[in-house]
Design a protein around this nucleic acid. Structure first.
Length: 647
RNA sequence: UCCUCCUUAGCUCAACUGGCAGAGCAAUUGUCUUGUAAACAAUAGGUUGUGGGUUCAACUCCCUCAGGAGGAUCCA
């Protein structure tokens, strides 16, 4: 063993330490403050605890609450304390697994016949904090497989026994803290005192190992923080998220509805929601027109044969809505689950020359996919939805450039809609399971390379996921964070060498030979339904002025001004604005209150004075009365405001 | 598809341990013709999601189906 080892830090510096130095000691050496904040370290990519000795040259990163892995370390330790609290309060329970997740942690526990519920939360939370405050340390011990099995057989926990059976001897560790011991890979925080706040968020049934043939355990979700204030803020954020739930706001603002008679997962857009949606569609159409796209329209059904050709039937057919048949011929049609096969057939209408590529076919195409009933959720997960779909048919040498152009469209849309925080996920195939993908490995290599280069060229902040590719090609997905820092997957760009093959698409090259084009599938919004849902939650229903279903509501003071109000509404409509009149026989105070709650961006009050002077009294939502002005001034004010956003 | 919970007037929600189904808002009608976040009054509104069962009696207990929520699984 060498006397001293080299530790490389993230800032590029290196320092030598005696062999056996711990992460905690390194942190203290850097600064006391860092040592206080440290929760664990990343050593050559592996997260380990602060007190584990390091004996070889190592790249070390000190992890604190500011790193997700640091948070996860604390949450992992919290899961142990939760389990300890529950074991002490409910003797005889059997523990399953208790990992940290992106927001907190859970523990799957078999309570036997006892039904663990909301009434138990407080008691457990109290016990948890008591244990955490007592300053438990987490001690790692390697155990032999035989001893590990003996331990859990002794307390009759067949779940852990099953887990251990799947592990290699020599690779099994237990962690001891207080009176608690758990099979665990670690790592953990040095001291439970750093966990200052804890809350059980909810419980849910979860099958052992996710298999519905296995017994069901109670999954207890919790979250913990190093400061009480952070917990309070987090809980407040959850409250706010509940208030912003698009299902609630969608109902309140009369944007969309569902009907049992029509069928679950089949949203219907109400007039106001339709105005919002159409505005988005018009916006994107204009952007696409500039980008050289052509709109097409294709039917909602297609012959089963079409999807056999595309390969979708083989991959998804049995889990889809089943084919419908014509009464006399018995021909089978499917509700279209995607638009690409139709677009391929459009491409084949006539021979194509290399000179007309790229051909960009866009369609706001409504597709129908069978989703399991439990999967449905508001507008984010439905059985019928409209994609802002387009397929770009191009030559292989155009792929990268086209891909970059699509990235630019997606980024432009995010900018206009104020999604400032986004990241891109590059989804590649999983080399371990080649049977899941169609096509030749060489083509996949080329396709994956093109995506990576295009993303780099635009300097995208990317993460790469193996095994997340579509069966026909790799993709680039965009995840945006909304106002509450929740991540949503929206736009997607996918590269495809398979469908052109399967549909035998061709073009005549400059060499007068036949060549195969490449396809790019792309949808910047993803689906309009899902996008609007995210937009609702992002804005809390306070849409930017250019999207608001009603941009201004005209409020006559008395019924005798209703005619003038109607005239004003017509004038605004002619200028291209969406306005409506609240002509009810109600007090102005009430009309204003309801307009504020109804999230109308502008309220235009009309009474004696305004009618006489040809002016309107303008009130801006949330800001109040902003004064009286001639109608034309208001119109140019609105125009300027919208131009500013869309420039 | 599976598990748990939920479903009461258009909306939001009450109704104890099985004992006459109720309020606010919305709607309708009347009075008030109104100046920047809720005028007043009256009326109407229900086979308590569906179908069955237990009971002298069911919103309440049991079963069924449908829908919703949370989760598991899934997501071209």
């Amino acid at each position: 063993m060498p006397e001293s080892i080299q530790i490389h830090l993230p800032d590029g510096s290196s320092k030598s330490y005696p062999s056996g130095v711990t992460g905690g000691e390194i942190a203290r050496d850097i600064s006391e403050g860092l040592a206080r904040m440290a929760l664990s370290i990343k050593a050559n990519g592996e997260v380990i605890e602060l007190n584990r000795p390091i004996t070889t040259d190592t790249k070390v990163q000190i992890l604190t609450w500011n790193d997700l892995d640091g948070k996860k370390t604390m949450w992992h330790s919290s899961a142990h304390i939760l389990a300890e609290a529950i074991e002490s309060l409910y003797p005889g329970v059997k523990l399953g697994i208790g990992p940290p997740i992106d927001r907190g942690f859970y523990y799957d526990i078999d309570f036997g016949d006892y039904e663990f519920g909301a009434n138990d939360f407080e008691k457990v939370e109290k016990k948890f904090l008591e244990l955490a405050r007592s300053g438990e340390t987490f001690e790692r011990k390697e155990v032999s497989k035989a001893d590990a099995l003996k331990h859990y057989q002794g307390i009759n926990n067949d779940y852990k026994v099953e887990l251990i059976e799947g592990l290699d001897d020599g690779n099994i560790t237990f962690y001891y803290s207080g009176n608690f011991v758990d099979l665990c890979r670690g790592p953990h925080v040095p001291d439970s005192k750093s966990i200052k706040a804890f809350k059980i968020l909810n419980t849910a049934g979860a099958y052992w190992r996710g298999n519905e043939n296995n017994p069901q355990l109670t999954r207890i979700y919790g979250i913990s923080f190093p400061k009480k204030k952070e917990l309070d803020e987090y809980l407040e954020m959850l409250e706010e998220a509940k208030k912003r739930d698009h299902r609630k706001i969608g109902k309140e603002l009369e944007l969309f509805t569902f009907s049992q008679k029509v069928g679950m997962g089949l949203p219907m857009w109400l007039p106001k929601g339709t105005r919002l949606r159409e505005t988005l569609v018009d916006f994107l159409k204009k952007v696409q027109e500039k980008g050289g796209y052509e709109q097409v329209i294709t039917p909602h059904i297609g012959k089963k044969e079409l999807y056999v050709t595309s390969g979708h039937y083989e991959k998804y057919g049995e889990d889809s809505f089943q084919p419908i048949q014509t009464p006399s011929e018995g021909e089978e049609f499917m509700l279209k689950p995607m638009n690409c096969p139709h677009h391929c057939e459009i491409y084949k209408t006539r021979p194509r020359s290399y000179r007309e590529l790229p051909l960009r076919l866009a369609e706001f195409g409504t597709v129908y996919r069978y989703e399991q009933s439990g999967e449905l959720h508001g507008l984010t997960r439905v059985r019928g939805f409209t994609q802002d779909d387009a397929h770009i048919f191009c030559r292989p040498d155009q792929v990268k450039e086209e891909f970059i152009k699509v990235i630019d469209i997606v980024l432009y849309i995010f900018k206009i809609l104020d999604f400032q925080d986004y990241k891109a996920q590059i989804s590649l195939r999983d080399p371990e399971t080649p049977e899941k993908y169609f096509g030749k490995p060489e083509q996949w290599d080329k396709a994956e390379q093109a995506i990576i280069e295009a993303a780099n060229e635009r300097g995208l902040n990317t993460v790469t996921e193996l095994g997340e590719a579509a069966f026909y090609g790799p993709k680039l997905d965009f995840m945006v964070s909304d106002a509450l820092h929740r991540e949503w997957q929206l736009g997607t760009i996918q590269l495809d060498y398979q469908l052109p093959e399967r549909f035998e698409l061709e073009y005549i090259g400059a060499d007068n030979e036949k060549h195969r084009p490449v396809m790019i599938h792309r949808a910047p919004f993803g689906s309009l339904e899902r996008f609007v849902a995210v937009l609702i939650e992002h804005t809390a229903g306070d849409f930017p002025i250019w999207l608001a279903p009603t941009q201004a509501i005209i409020l006559p003071i008395a019924e005798k001004f209703n005619d003038m109000a109607e005239n004003l509404q017509k004038k605004l409509a002619e200028a291209g604005f969406r306005a409506e009149v609240d002509g009810r026989y109600e007090k102005i105070g009430k009309k204003i209150r309801e307009a504020e709650l109804g999230k109308f961006p502008y309220m235009l009050v009309m009474g004696e004075q305004e009618v006489n002077n040809g002016t309107i009294s303008v009130r801006k939502r949330k800001e109040g009365d902003i004064g009286t002005m001639p109608v034309d001034d208001f119109i140019s004010h609105l125009q300027a405001e919208i131009t500013e956003i869309l420039k």
